[in-house]
């Protein structure tokens, strides 16, 4: 097997002097081009894990390597440069609500442009062209100058995807990208993410709520329970017993299509 793209070693995160333990000694590897889905109940540490990988949250212990670089050792400045390669999309989209879609998408290029220019809102012509191309890709070209809060949830998430695309990422972190959306829109958003994974070769780490979505899109699944890694394997391997183990005894699988 080739050198893994992402390696997470003994990752631990505790809050408040040990009062809250979010992650307990989590280790796994991800190959380049994989679509890894993280499942688990709310509060099982999925979001914390994803945020540790681009160090939006500082891990308490453990090491993370991306493409051979130990990112847990990078200085804040180096980390900022490194984050350009890591796109991220969020459950609640996290768009600038009062700004246009175009501005929102252009924020994906902040790391590539000199600060003084971006503070004045000046982006180079090439970036604007790229923004329009990416908006076309997610099917929102004609909404380019509409305010972001005038869009529907699914459209807002697609803007989020376009913003991530602007970074031309190697790795995409998706934190419950469809939890705030209805089932029909969920699939369209997931398909854009899948397209990024297939066509651009972006490695994807997505946390998902529904097992059916995880089975449908993931090439591999890991499961977290109370901050611990309880499952790591192919989607088919999750049977009824495994399911109960991850989600608890009373859980019932829901099909979402």
């Amino acid at each position: 097997m080739a050198e893994p793209y992402l390696v997470v070693e003994h990752l631990t995160k505790v809050y408040e002097r040990g009062h809250v333990v979010a992650l307990k000694d989590v280790s796994f590897e991800v190959q380049k081009g994989e679509f890894l889905v993280i499942i688990g109940l709310s509060g099982s540490g999925k979001s914390t894990l994803l945020r540790c990988i681009n160090r939006l949250i500082e891990p308490t212990k453990g090491r993370i390597f991306i493409d051979g670089v130990e990112i847990t050792r990078l200085s804040p400045r180096q980390m900022r440069r490194f984050r350009r390669k890591i796109g991220m999309i969020f459950q609640h989209f996290n768009l600038i609500k009062r700004a246009t879609v175009m501005t929102n998408v252009l924020t994906g290029r902040l790391g590539y442009n000199p600060t003084w220019k971006t503070l004045l809102g000046l982006f180079p012509r090439s970036d604007r062209e790229l923004a329009l191309r990416n908006l076309e890709r997610v099917g929102l070209l004609e909404k380019a100058y509409v305010r972001a809060d005038e869009l529907s949830g699914g459209q807002q998430q697609r803007v989020g995807i376009a913003r991530a695309l602007m970074q031309q990422p190697e790795l995409l972190l998706a934190d419950e990208p469809v939890s705030a959306l209805d089932p029909a829109t969920s699939h369209s958003v997931m398909q854009y993410i899948e397209q990024m994974n297939r066509e651009d070769g972006v490695t994807v780490l997505a946390s998902l709520h529904f097992l059916s979505l995880a089975r449908r899109y993931g090439t591999r699944i890991i499961a977290l329970k109370d901050g611990e890694l309880v499952f790591d394997g192919a989607p088919e391997e999750i049977d009824d017993r495994k399911f109960k183990e991850i989600y608890g005894e009373e859980a019932e699988e829901v099909e979402i299509r």
């Binding site: 939006l56 900022r80 996290n94």
Partner: peptide
């Protein structure tokens, strides 16, 4: 959330 999102782009 928005601060997170913008930080995540490398800003």
């Amino acid at each position: 959330g928005l601060i997170e999102a913008i930080t995540a782009t490398g800003a």
